[in-house]
């Protein structure tokens, strides 16, 4: 729900301000790749209506966000290609593919794709964080969006602890990826919490 909320917040921000200054389209592209790799199972397995609906919403809303930022004026006119230039193709995609291949529990295409998607998701926030560090001053809605985008994985960790004790659920790759992902946010969260506490604008060091 937090993940969904972060997407809705971003959509709302783009529609309301008609600007995507401070938003990394490259992060959305990473997520689009994550979703396409992971949700291939839409074609051959059914878990629940909720699960299927969320997958479809995540994929379609993420592609819509990319479309808005890259191609749809007036939002696309505010997109700064030079600032949002983190080369995830080299730094994230390659390593995620290699890690996905060597750490997959089983060498099948869906399993390798799933594993690679977990590793890629764990670092997908990097383009966004690096963009914010260049700008330093973060708009309120952008701050909420990034905070919810980080918080959802933290709540997964709580759920994993519950599931481990309640059902003996084990998911080593998911857990490790989740810890890396949450760890990358800790720094941002700190500055976000401080700005909320003091009721000031979020300014990154």
């Amino acid at each position: 729900m937090l993940h969904l909320m972060s997407i809705l917040l971003l959509l709302w921000k783009l529609k309301k301000s008609k600007s995507c200054v401070g938003i990394s389209c490259r992060m959305q592209e990473c997520y689009a790749i994550v979703f396409c790799l992971r949700y291939l199972d839409l074609f051959y397995q059914f878990i629940s209506v909720y699960n299927t609906a969320m997958k479809v919403v995540f994929i379609s809303s993420t592609f819509y966000l990319i479309f808005l930022m890259r191609f749809q004026p007036p939002v696309s006119a505010t997109y700064d290609r030079t600032a949002d230039s983190f080369p995830y193709e080299q730094y994230l995609l390659g390593p995620a593919a290699v890690l996905g291949f060597i750490s997959a529990e089983e060498w099948s295409i869906p399993e390798i794709f799933w594993t690679a998607s977990i590793w890629l998701e764990s670092v997908s926030i990097l383009p966004q964080l690096i963009l914010l560090q260049q700008l330093r001053e973060v708009e309120n809605l952008t701050a909420e969006f990034v905070a919810t985008m980080g918080a959802y994985r933290f709540f997964y960790i709580l759920n994993w602890i519950y599931r481990y004790f309640a059902e003996g659920y084990v998911n080593w790759i998911g857990w490790l990826g989740g810890i890396v992902q949450t760890g990358l946010y800790v720094d941002f969260f700190y500055y976000y919490a401080m700005s909320k506490w003091y009721g000031q604008k979020l300014v990154l060091p």
């Binding site: 992971r38 199972d41 397995q45 699960n51 969320m54 089983e106 099948s108 799933w114 997964y156 998911n171």
Partner: peptide, 10 residues
């Protein structure tokens, strides 16, 4: 086999 059940998380 857990994989037969598939990944049930998003």
């Amino acid at each position: 086999d857990a994989r037969l059940v598939g990944h049930d998380e998003l």
